[in-house]
Design a protein around this nucleic acid. Structure first.
Lengths: 212, 212
DNA sequence: CACCATACCGAACAATTGTTTGTTTTTGAA
DNA sequence: TTCAAAAACAAACAATTGTTCGGTATGGTG
C-alpha cells in the first residue's frame, strides 16, 4: 500500500466510471472493461490475488497499468468485481437445476455437479471465488464474504428441500457438503473423474448408510 | 524475487545451518531459531504467506530481517520448515488416537476431532498447513504437497480400518471428509461449536442413513 | 585462556509493487 | 462540424519487498 496519503474524501468505491457531473454517462463501444475482468479472473484464479500484479492484468488486456484505475479505484475493488461475476455465474448454473422438479436428491446431486463445474472446469471467475480468501483483501473482505453467503443461501435451498429424518442437522450437512466440494479444487486433476461423477459419489456417501 | 542473479551453485536448500567445514556444527543455547519459527507460523497462519514480510517475522522474533537468512536460505524455505512442523504436530495429535483400540468409528471421530483442533484452535503451525496453498511458494510447492500427502496417508488409516459395505469408495470418502474438515477453517468461529462436537456431527452424517 | 564456529547486526541494494497525475486520443451525440 | 465526456497513455512516485554481505559479539570446546 504505497503512497501514504489517502485523502479523506477519496472515493474508495467505484465499480463503474465516475459519472461526476449530471450528464448521461453513456459508455463507449470500445470499452475494454470486459477484457480487464477476464484477464484479472484468469490471473487471480491461477496465481492467486497476492501474486498477481496490476501489470500482469494490464498486460494481458493490452493496456498500461495506470489505465486500470479509470475503471477501478484499487486492486481490491477489481477483485470485488471479479468475485461478484463469479458468484453470478455459479448461481446462474445452479439455480435452473433447483427450479426443475423431480426427486430432491437428484436435484441436490445436479446442483453439486453444477457447483463443481463452476470451480473446476468452466469458469475462471468461479475459481476465484473459492481460491481467493476474503482476508487476502482486508479492505473489502466483508463484501466478499457477503457475496459468498449470498450464494450459499442458494445452495442451501437444495438441502432444505431434502426429505430427511427428523432431528437432522441441516446446517452441518450444508457446511460439510460445501466444504467437501470447495476443497476439491486442491486435489482435482482435469481429465480424471468428471464433476458429475464426483457429485454422484459424494451424495451417495451421504445418502447411503455406511454402517455394516 | 529481487536481485536477479542467483548463482548456479547456490545452496537453495538449507534447513539447518551451513556446516561448511568438517567441524561438529554444534548449535548454541541462545539460538533463536524456535522464535523465528513461532513468529513465522503466527504470521503465516493469520495473514497468509504472501502478505507476510520477512520484516514482520524478524520483528516479532526481535531481530533484523537479514539475520533470518542465517537459518533459512529463503522465505520459501522458511515456509517449508513451518509446514513440516505443522504436519508433525497434527500427526502427533492423530496417531495416538489411531493406536488406541476400540470401535473404528469412534477412532475416526476422535481422529477428526484431533485434526480439527490442529487447524482451528491449538496450533498456528497446523493452521499454516491448511491456510497456505503450495502454489503460493512455487519453488518449494512439490515439497509442501509431499508433506500434506504424508499426513493424509496417516488419516487414511482411520478410514481403512472402517467396516464398510462392499464396493464403498474409500478414496472418495477420505477426500470428502478431509475436505469438509479443512474447509471449516473458513467458517469456524471460536467459542461456538467445539471441534469435538463438529467431528461428531460430521461422522454421524456419514454413518447414519439420510434417506427417509 | 585461546580459538573458532555460531549467531546476529547494520546497512545497504535492486527489483517490484500499487497508485497518481497531467495529457492525449477517440467516441458519440448535438 | 463541434465539443464534451470517455478511455487510455506516458511517466513517474513512494513505499515495500526479498535478499546480500562484511563485520562483530558471544558462547562452547580444547
Amino acid at each position: 500500500m504505497p503512497t501514504v496519503a489517502r485523502t479523506m474524501d477519496r472515493r474508495i468505491t467505484r465499480s463503474s466510471p465516475p459519472a461526476s457531473g449530471r450528464q448521461a454517462a453513456v459508455p463507449r463501444s470500445d470499452n475494454r472493461l470486459p477484457l480487464i475482468l477476464d484477464a484479472a479472473a484468469r490471473f487471480f484464479s491461477e496465481k492467486g490475488f497476492g501474486h498477481t500484479s496490476m501489470r500482469d492484468i494490464a498486460g494481458m488486456a493490452g493496456m498500461l497499468p495506470g489505465s486500470l484505475y479509470y475503471h477501478f479505484a484499487s486492486k481490491e475493488e477489481l477483485l470485488v468485481a471479479v468475485y461478484a461475476e463469479g458468484v453470478r455465474r455459479i448461481k446462474a448454473a445452479v439455480e435452473p437445476v433447483l427450479a426443475k422438479g423431480g426427486d430432491p436428491w437428484t436435484r441436490l446431486e445436479n446442483a453439486c455437479a453444477a457447483h463443481l463445474e463452476g470451480l473446476l472446469e468452466d469458469s475462471t471467475y468461479g475459481q476465484v471465488v473459492i481460491r481467493v480468501r476474503p482476508d487476502d483483501a482486508p479492505e473489502v473482505a466483508a463484501r466478499l464474504v457477503a457475496l459468498r453467503d449470498e450464494y450459499e443461501a442458494t445452495f442451501g435451498q437444495a438441502i432444505a428441500a431434502l426429505p430427511l429424518p427428523p432431528r437432522t442437522d441441516r446446517r452441518a450437512l450444508k457446511l460439510m457438503l460445501l466444504g467437501a466440494l470447495n476443497w476439491s479444487q486442491t486435489w482435482y486433476r482435469s481429465g480424471k473423474d468428471s464433476p458429475q461423477v464426483l457429485a454422484r459419489r459424494f451424495v451417495r456417501l451421504l445418502r447411503d448408510p455406511l454402517d455394516a
